[in-house]
Design a protein around this nucleic acid. Structure first.
Lengths: 364, 364
DNA sequence: CGAGATTGCTAAATGGATTTAGCGTCCTGA
DNA sequence: TCAGGACGCTAAATCCATTTAGCAATCTCG
């Protein structure tokens, strides 16, 4: 079967010509199934050698078209600008690569139109599955996937259109609050004055964390906290203003439950213009190495990105994403040096994004 | 031309059958070139309607195979865990989407084997171009691309196998050093005691920044700084140790040139156990909002990720990536609130990753 | 009235890899 | 001697979209 040699990239036909055999044989050999088809060892070797000599590279588009499997897997996230999403992206890639798949991660900046168009593009690229993280409303995206018979999983957000893998926000918040109360007590503060700052009203994660915060206080015997829950959003600036307001109300609270790293960023900015002595104990539902190194007593909760991704792939592997199914993953506690120094408790295990990455000399 | 209706996803053949026309007509209509081929308006509308009704989605693998253009564009970066790489990834995606291309960003954890295999996978997926950022040795990757006739660009690293887009490390370091000296002088410190910490010996960016640092000092009349350049690597822990060592040598220097955000992370950790009064002035060759909000006088240099990406795409658009060509992009200065408060200078423009993202309520 | 133009559309080739049915030759055993 | 098997390989169909050459029917105008 003669075909003219293609412009530059070599194809199985080119190799067939060069090795004086047929394209079918080349394909069989390159896929390793040549023994099953009784191709002579020397023929196989000849083919392998010419393929190597020509720098042959499989055209995965052609293979994908033939086999209706692209070996592409997709994930959408809002952005990469915090450790949680960065970790999700890296874990997802590692997991995909381990399975011989090509990961496509796209950040959608929390824009519903972008989310939709990215999902459509991914479907058009024939991704084999799609993991959806951090969107406001996953339902229409789940519908898109379903119509295209693409398995999808909602990550860290509940949704009724597919299975969801979520962090155990409530239990995490309870644990964090319990630790916070104990540290405040240890420092001689009044735990009833602890405040909650950050997050969005009505948002799933925020409301779960508020519920856990209140439950944690109640378990510590504080059934009616003295002040409002400040769901001031996720912008550092808004959080800073909230802290300014709180500071204006009287003596600064002895402890604060900070919901999200950006709210903590706002607190750091606030600290720039206020010297608080003694510094309040900070419990943050999020993790960042920079924040963990602050000269403040900080306890942080790190979402278990490895487990979240592993569970998502488990759903994909199972072949079904049951609507409304909820898979819950507990977060892990991280304690700042300032807290460790007090000798209160043993340090938590290192919260690296993944093992391999830890060994590397990280750079700026 | 009869074809059996495919399992689930509809193809142009399904639509042709449903709209009682041919696949060619469907293709022509769907691509908008139907007027050129004198397809009746009503036929076109009929086709468009059935396509919409069936939720048709182009199979980009098939199109890519036919046209030998995949509409995929690739980029590799070491990781997403700092603002620079996160920003590169987001800008790259935005730029790709604006051109109707599908971005594939993959993090390779600075592992040469991973880098190689990722590049091979991307080539197999037929990416139309590849941007290589933050690898140790781009040359073999450039060779791989060249053999596959894929245009590639080295980003923020010099390389002889393709064109390179790099930050102007030296000029940036000079500017940063000049500012640092002036702030130290303003605070009554001795600028000759300023130290340089962080980075890797022999690495392109580090050596350029060291040269800029020394040139900046010299311009300020300090030709022989009193102490060593501490190229202690990029790990926070190593930087922390370097700071401990420096603190052990006598009074802490009045200013430090910190090379990279991770070294600054090490400084923050160091600060946890040392109360320095007055705090030293920090000049950091990197940018991070958290660090910028620290209760310290910090000036930071932010690499211009938008321009770096724009220049990389410009090379791609030009159709040639001249070996060894160097395109230099200046970084921009960012000043911390603690410095602004001193009224020294007007604040620099907001260093957001991109305009759209700034409007959004960022989350944790 | 008939050559030539116009209209509206379609058949068929193409891109590269996969995979099955099957072809020709030689060998074995009854 | 001949049916049946082993051996070593290949032709051809298939996946889906694109695009060109060209067909049949109708219209135009000298």
């Amino acid at each position: 079967m003669a075909r003219k040699p293609t412009g530059r990239r070599s194809t199985i036909y080119d190799i067939a010509t060069a090795a004086e055999t047929s394209a079918s044989t080349v394909s069989l050999v390159l896929n390793g199934s040549w023994e099953r088809y009784r191709i002579k060892k020397e023929t196989a070797e000849r083919i392998l050698n010419t393929a190597k000599a020509k720098g042959y590279n499989t055209n995965l588009q052609a293979r994908g078209l033939r086999l209706s499997r692209s070996s592409l897997v997709g994930m959408i996230i809002p952005h990469y600008r915090n450790r949680f999403f960065a970790g999700l992206a890296e874990c997802f890639e590692a997991e995909a690569r381990a399975r011989g798949l090509t990961p496509i991660v796209v950040s959608t900046q929390r824009d519903a139109k972008t989310e939709r168009s990215v999902v459509e593009t991914m479907i058009a690229q024939q991704v084999e599955c799609l993991i959806i993280a951090g969107v406001d409303d996953p339902d229409p995206l789940n519908v898109l996937c379903e119509r295209a018979t693409i398995l999808c999983v909602n990550l860290d957000l509940p949704g009724e259109g597919a299975a969801s893998v979520v962090t155990d926000n409530r239990a995490g918040a309870i644990e964090l609050t319990t630790r916070l109360v104990s540290l405040v007590n240890g420092a001689g503060g009044d735990p009833a004055r602890i405040r909650f700052v950050g997050g969005r009203q009505g948002e799933f994660a925020t409301e779960e964390r508020v519920a856990g915060f209140l439950a944690g206080l109640e378990q510590a015997g504080i059934s009616a906290p003295k002040a409002e829950i400040e769901r001031c959003g996720y912008r550092p600036g808004a959080a800073r203003q909230a802290f300014e307001r709180i500071a204006g109300e009287g003596p600064f609270p002895p402890g604060v439950f900070v919901n999200s790293i950006t709210a903590l960023e706002g607190f750091t900015a606030f600290l720039g213009s206020h010297r608080l002595a003694p510094p309040p104990v900070i419990a943050c539902f999020d993790w960042d190495p920079f924040a963990a190194a602050l000269p403040l007593p900080v306890i942080m909760l790190r979402q278990n990105v490895e487990a979240l991704i592993a569970q998502s792939f488990a759903v994909v592997d199972s072949g079904v994403s049951e609507r409304g199914r909820r898979i819950v993953v507990p977060p892990t506690l991280a304690v700042s040096p300032a807290v460790e120094a007090d000798g209160e408790e043993a340090p938590s295990p290192p919260p690296g994004t993944n093992r391999k990455a830890r060994k590397v000399d990280r750079d700026g």
